[in-house]
């Protein structure tokens, strides 16, 4: 009997939850705010679905109801991707070690 591909995806999902659990516990508490902003940025990988939806229209009608929602989702996810990664970068650059020479 063949295994439904859904089961494989479910396996990836469950294992990723465990990976997430252990990885996030190892994040130092002082970086919890950057953690939130970076998880925000990476969850915007949902843009993948938005791009598929946006490009689904045929060449005569680029804009139909479905693709318009796709384009809007691209717009929203793009704000998040750029905003999320850059604000994380900005925060991380502030974390400096004690200067030894004083």
């Amino acid at each position: 009997m063949e295994i439904d591909p859904f089961i494989f995806r479910l396996s990836i999902f469950i294992l990723s939850i465990f990976i997430g659990y252990y990885v996030v516990w190892s994040v130092t508490p002082s970086l919890h705010t950057p953690l939130m902003s970076v998880t925000n940025a990476i969850s915007s990988v949902i843009i993948v679905g938005a791009i598929i939806a946006g490009l689904a229209g045929n060449s005569e009608s680029i804009f139909n109801t479905s693709s318009i929602f796709g384009f809007l989702a691209i717009f929203l996810a793009a704000i998040n991707i750029f905003g999320g990664f850059l604000v994380t970068q900005r925060m991380l650059q502030m974390y400096k070690k004690k200067k030894k020479d004083k």
């Binding site: 995806r9 999902f13 469950i14 996030v24 998880t39």
Partner: peptide, 24 residues
Amino acid sequence: IGFTLENSALIITGALVGSSGAIL
């Protein structure tokens, strides 16, 4: 959405973010 699109990047990310928020 990752399950709907059968996209592993989305499934992995969703699980990571989901557990991260829960731990926080």
